Simulated assay, not measured.
Amino acid sequence: MRRHVPLNAIRAFEAVVRHGSVVRAANELCVTPTAVSHQIRLLEDFLQVELFSRRNSRIFPTPGALANVARVSQALDLIDDAVRDLGVTDERAHSSLSISVSASCASLWLVPRIGEFMAGAPETDIHVRTFLTRKEAEAQDSELKICPWRGQSGFQAEPLVEESTTPVCSPDLAARFAGDGREILRHAPLIHVDRGHLGIEADFPDWARYLTEYGLSRPNFNHGLRFNQSGQAVEAAMAGAGVLLGRSLLIGRAVQAGKLVPVAEAYPQRIPSYLLTPLKPRSRRSLDTFRDWLLKTARPDALMQAA
């Protein structure tokens, strides 16, 4: 006969160990710290073993508690998944997933490909949220984020791709310089993307860095068109307004379509992008399905090289 284990007490125990705090565990469980402490003592009485040591009004998990909390967390995840599945009807399999991605990456890379995912997973509703700054991205309560940084509290990071940065311009602009890349870089108008103040993409090279690296001189590296979004800069380059240091993730389709042409070699440093996912996601199944599709789509892409 299965023992009648105190499930609420087990949830309280797991939350306290994971957060390292009774108060934070209480906030997650929507109860008072006193109620959490009561559940901990209830579980200790049930098991007839101490799970925490208490010093100076603080509690610390015992070695036995630390050794077993991972399995408890996995068991609670399984229970959550099973209960969620019980509520799925035949209409069903409809789940939702929210994604945060920069505005430029959304319009130039994700959106042109998202139909492929929707065709293969019609039961998943996708909510795409765009951001311009890192502050906006971190404020969004999304279950998956595509970012050029890896750190955010409550999320785990996984490498997605490494991007290169290549000078590109329209075929018409290249023809004006007879396709001579060095002449284009010396004399064609430069298109800039201002990223530093956004708190994102700061590692991508600017024109001063690129031209200095390759020993090319111009009267002033900073002249030309300036944009605060990469998407607008790509559109300007396709329109023949100048030459752009384009991110491989964003210019790939335009290059394949012949709307942009590379005029020099890529900058030697590659910049990684990451998938950020919550440590405890709301919808494990839809998150894993989209993540698998994203990795399958991005990593073999000719635009990038896997991280």
Rank of each mutant, 00 (worst) to 15 (best):
P262E: 10
P272Q: 00
A241I: 03
L47N: 15
R247I: 10
P167A: 11
H197T: 11
V161R: 12
A12N: 04
L160R: 02
I271N: 14
P63H: 10
G181T: 13
D80I: 01
F204G: 03
V111N: 05
F290G: 15
E91A: 04
Q305W: 07
G181Y: 13
Q269C: 04
G87Y: 03
A35S: 13
I59C: 01
L86A: 12
L110I: 05
I184C: 01
G120R: 15
L47F: 14
I114T: 01
H94T: 13
A302H: 07
L279Q: 15
V31M: 03
V243P: 02
Q39A: 01
R247W: 07
N27V: 14
S21L: 08
M1L: 07
R134G: 09
T34S: 15
G240Q: 11
E201K: 11
A70H: 08
R113F: 03
F117R: 06
G231M: 08
D45F: 05
T133P: 01
L260R: 02
E158K: 11
P63R: 05
G87R: 04
L185D: 08
V69I: 15
F227R: 06
A139S: 10
N56I: 06
P281A: 08
H38D: 08
S273G: 12
R282L: 13
T289Q: 11
E28Q: 13
T289N: 05
Y210H: 08
Q156N: 05
F46A: 00
L66M: 15
S248V: 04
D172W: 00
D141I: 13
E201C: 02
Q229K: 07
F117D: 10
G181R: 06
D301H: 05
V101A: 10
H38W: 11
F60C: 09
C169E: 08
R150N: 10
S98A: 15
